[in-house]
């Protein structure tokens, strides 16, 4: 060991442990995990009537046995998702800043803004590529990619980024479950014969419901933690 003296109170192990503990406390004080989940759940639920009634572009209609097969693009819903998610992330960034300030801290807002912008870019690019460059039915790999770049999947990817930014293990685990549900669509059979107007609803109800339950779970956990 060195001949240099180190004050007992400044023991390296203790200093490092204190430093980590304080950094962790700051992260906990800055977290409002329930808020983005509830906002994204609301965005998902509102998407249901939007997708049902918003204008859609119909093209490539071809006669087939027993009717006509057309390709349609939910233009209105597409615009809704991009705008809604950008607004949602602006709201989330604002909330994080406000909560942190109320606790005597500031917060890094840039990651949330960047995530929101990246989400909008991915959604726009994905939607345009799948609409203009590819023709259904898509091969298996592309179906997986499509599910990742469609709104529910993109929300999962964004949550994955947030869990990393916040170093939040519970959010990471929740996001993995969410992505599994989104990538392996579960409908319990309902909605399969509802046609193009309502057929998408079950998956949105399930992904929105999961986000809402997650948000409420994190809210309760956070409240209990503060009461202790």
């Amino acid at each position: 060991m060195t001949a240099d003296s180190v004050p007992a109170g400044d023991d390296p192990r203790r200093l490092l442990a204190d430093s980590r503990r304080l950094a962790h406390r700051v992260r906990l004080a800055q977290r409002v995990t329930w808020f983005p989940l509830l906002v994204l759940a609301a965005v998902t639920f509102v998407a249901i009537p939007v997708q049902r009634w918003a204008p859609r572009a119909v093209s490539n209609c071809q006669p087939i046995a027993g009717g006509t097969r057309c390709t349609f693009w939910l233009v209105g819903a597409f615009v809704y998702w991009v705008l809604a998610l950008v607004l949602a992330y602006a709201l989330i960034a604002g909330c994080y800043l406000r909560v942190a300030q109320s606790r005597g801290l500031s917060s890094r807002v840039a990651p949330y803004v960047i995530t929101g912008i990246a989400l909008a870019v991915v959604l726009t690019a994905g939607g345009l590529v799948f609409h203009y460059l590819l023709t259904p039915p898509y091969p298996g790999v592309l179906v997986g990619v499509w599910r990742l770049v469609e709104p529910s999947g993109a929300i999962g990817v964004a949550l994955l980024v947030l869990s990393w930014l916040e170093r939040h293990l519970a959010l990471l685990l929740f996001t993995v479950v969410y992505l599994v549900v989104v990538l392996v669509p579960i409908t319990f059979g309902w909605g399969s014969h509802w046609g193009s107007r309502w057929g998408f609803a079950p998956s949105l109800v399930i992904s929105g419901g999961l986000l809402m339950l997650g948000g409420l779970g994190f809210l309760l956990t956070q409240r209990r933690g503060r009461q202790r």
Binding site: D18, S19, L22, A23, V26, R27, Q30, A100, G104, L105, S106, S107, R108
Partner: peptide
């Protein structure tokens, strides 16, 4: 440490 993590405290 706190100022680093919080940006402003």
């Amino acid at each position: 440490t706190i100022a680093h993590e919080a940006r402003r405290v």
